[in-house]
Design a protein around this nucleic acid. Structure first.
Lengths: 176, 176
DNA sequence: CCCCATAAGTTCTATTATGGAACTTATAGG
DNA sequence: CCTATAAGTTCCATAATAGAACTTATGGGG
């Protein structure tokens, strides 16, 4: 006879992780969600438009839109009643999430397209000027290379010294 | 009688998409891959270290490491023979991919942690100075808000005019 | 009034991916 | 000989996904 053992199996969630990367990945660590945000940035805000441009399965799109709305990146609003029809628009938080898209874009341009043959550009909505996203240090204004970075505990990292020293080994070895 | 119909069903791949975001998502649009890169940035480069810090299933970790190596973000090298033991280190491309982590981090800090209570900080490996990643326009040096951006076709976007006009509707309406 | 079209989802099923746990392999040390 | 360690494999049950067909509410044309 086989005893049934209760197991929990669902996609890992990081919503209580003490790491801002992990927390962001709960909603952005996915193939579809960033692309849905991209489409909203393109001005494709309706269910069928999103489905067509992305080639995503309709049931998945339903779930993802719900998720993005629940997480506050998109806002669902009716653009007509009788029959009720909806649009999904980026919220403040959603626009902020799009900076992750800019980083993805920069990486993709660099590694998957030839110089001067990138498929998309960004322009300022008002002036029409070309905009080229770069990650820099806010303090010095110089471009950041992650090779030169070292993670260290921030003010919100509450943990015993022993754990800190294990987690940020490189930092403690070099700076204390 | 039921005729079996051949269907293809696998995770969508975007490796021929004319979009740098989609291309990047092939390897970065996932919950685990960015976190594995994070761990490598933290100096946790071995299988068991990664498994322990991330709490990822060992079989999944195996597959993901293979994927990251095949995509050129990590490099597998032996740190001892007899018995053969390996480490996974970030490549140039891998370090570049980490700028996406910086964007994720910034977003997470802003929306999931209180001001001044973020769990992690970054410092310059040599000077020890605090580094604060921001996305700016390389031309003007000013911070970018994606709300003010409009996508438009780049030099590598080859398509008939009709498709361009549908895809970049907002751009063509306002700038030509 | 009937038929068709449209938008926004649901529902159904087959195929993959994932999580958890146990097992394997090679070698070193006591 | 027994045990430990590192780096995976293998196995299974459960969850997620793709693809297609179906639903619901409404408006328009004949």
């Amino acid at each position: 006879m086989q005893l049934t053992i209760l197991t929990f199996m669902e996609r890992k969630k990081f919503n209580s992780s003490p790491c801002s990367i992990a927390r962001s990945l709960d909603v952005l660590g996915d193939w579809w969600n960033p692309l849905i945000l991209r489409e909203c940035l393109y001005g494709n805000n309706r269910f069928d438009e999103l489905q067509e441009w992305l080639g995503i399965s309709r049931n998945i799109l339903t779930r993802r839109l719900k998720e993005l709305v629940e997480n506050g990146l998109l806002e669902k609003s009716a653009y007509q009643n009788k029959p009720a029809r909806y649009e999904y628009h980026l919220t403040e938080k959603g626009y902020d999430a799009c900076t992750v898209l800019l980083a993805l874009m920069q990486f993709g341009e660099h590694w998957y397209f030839n110089e001067g043959e990138h498929p998309i550009e960004l322009r300022d909505k008002k002036t029409g000027d070309l905009v080229q996203p770069t990650i820099v240090d806010a303090n010095t204004g110089k471009p950041i290379t992650s090779k030169n970075l070292i993670p260290c505990p921030g003010p919100g990292f509450k943990a015993p010294q022993a754990i800190l020293k294990r987690r940020f080994r490189e930092y403690y070895e070099n700076f204390s």
